[in-house]
């Protein structure tokens, strides 16, 4: 095993380890099976979105509209179930809806070369307000009994949700390393022009990545929705920031071309555990946000402390991304 490949992930992993040790010493009950299961379940949707976000960041783009897409997909899943759509058809419908919203982003960013942060900023506002307008804030209630847990029963469905999330992570991780399409993602993120000359179509890769992002958001929304018996209309507020933070804490470069899904897993676990860990240790919740911000900054600084300065050479001073001005 070649560890030098995972240097960046290592600093996040060490931070996570330190957190776990500290919490373990202060409150050993933290490692109870029930707590670990609940943590995994509560963070599975964020992890799925973060997997998609990793792909998007790897090609040098960003998607800050996922929180709004998440809400649209959640409500759509509820409506479909209420309209009598069989549970088995919910998954493909929601995946399709998510993929369509992702495709809109992808077309604008990939084919029309518009900056992703602006396109997705527009979508963040537009989807959220459109949903507010349509639902008027009403929750989707009185869902059929087999909506919750897909009608499979709590224990089985809980395993299924965590299993799907981890399965998606492993599958994408494998594809990124071993498939041509996966390598193309890194190639486009490192240098779109070089990738083009090497026979890769950057536009198609960017488009595809956004479609996947949308589909994964849809999947996350559905898996989250079925844990409850009603669907709120305001889900996923701030989800985009959680996902981006998880990816970055996991060591991916925001400028594209560098990062792994293992890192994203560690980042999501670190940020997803911290709130619960603080409660176990008995730290006042008022300081939670400040501590989260400090962790993001600390992850960045520790990166430097470990002596990796590649980013300097990559011109990290600006937001320039591979798809942008050159």
């Amino acid at each position: 095993m070649n560890f030098s490949r995972y240097k960046r992930e290592l600093s996040a992993a060490l931070a996570y380890l330190a957190l776990l040790v500290a919490v373990g010493a202060a409150a050993p009950t933290f490692f109870g099976a029930g707590n670990l299961r609940d943590l995994a379940l509560n963070n599975a949707p964020v992890l799925l979105v973060a997997v998609g976000m990793t792909l998007v960041i790897l090609v040098g783009e960003i998607d800050i509209s996922v929180g709004s897409q998440f809400a649209v997909c959640s409500v759509a899943a509820g409506w479909l179930a209420k309209e009598g759509v069989p549970v088995a058809l919910l998954l493909p419908s929601v995946l399709l809806l998510g993929a369509l919203m992702g495709a809109l982003n992808g077309a604008l960013v990939g084919y029309l070369k518009l900056p992703s942060i602006i396109v997705t900023l527009a979508m963040l506002v537009a989807w959220r307000d459109a949903l507010r307008w349509v639902t008027q804030g009403e929750w989707v209630q009185n869902l059929p009994a087999n909506f919750q847990w897909f009608g499979l029963g709590q224990t089985l469905a809980q395993w299924l949700i965590v299993g799907v999330a981890l399965g998606v992570l492993v599958a994408f991780s494998w594809m990124l390393r071993n498939l041509g399409a996966g390598r193309a993602v890194y190639a486009v993120g490192s240098d779109a022009e070089a990738a083009r000359l090497a026979g890769i179509e950057p536009r198609r890769v960017v488009f595809g990545v956004f479609v996947l992002m949308g589909a994964l958001t849809g999947l996350a929304a559905l898996l989250n929705a079925v844990r409850f018996s009603a669907v709120p209309s305001n889900a996923g507020i701030g989800l985009e920031l959680k996902a981006v933070a998880a990816v970055v804490v996991g060591g991916a470069a925001i400028t594209g071309g560098r990062g792994t899904l293992i890192g994203t897993l560690i980042g999501a676990a670190l940020l997803g555990t911290i709130g619960t860990a603080l409660t176990f240790v008995g730290i006042n919740p008022f300081w939670e946000k400040a501590i989260q911000g400090a962790i993001i900054l600390a992850a960045l600084v520790s990166d430097v402390a470990l002596g990796h300065f590649e980013r300097m050479r990559a011109g990290g001073l600006t937001l320039k991304t591979a798809g942008g001005a050159k």
Partner: peptide, 11 residues
């Protein structure tokens, strides 16, 4: 430290 402003200011 040469970090992208997007990430720093997110923190």
């Amino acid at each position: 430290l040469n970090f992208p402003p997007l990430i720093v200011t997110l923190g």
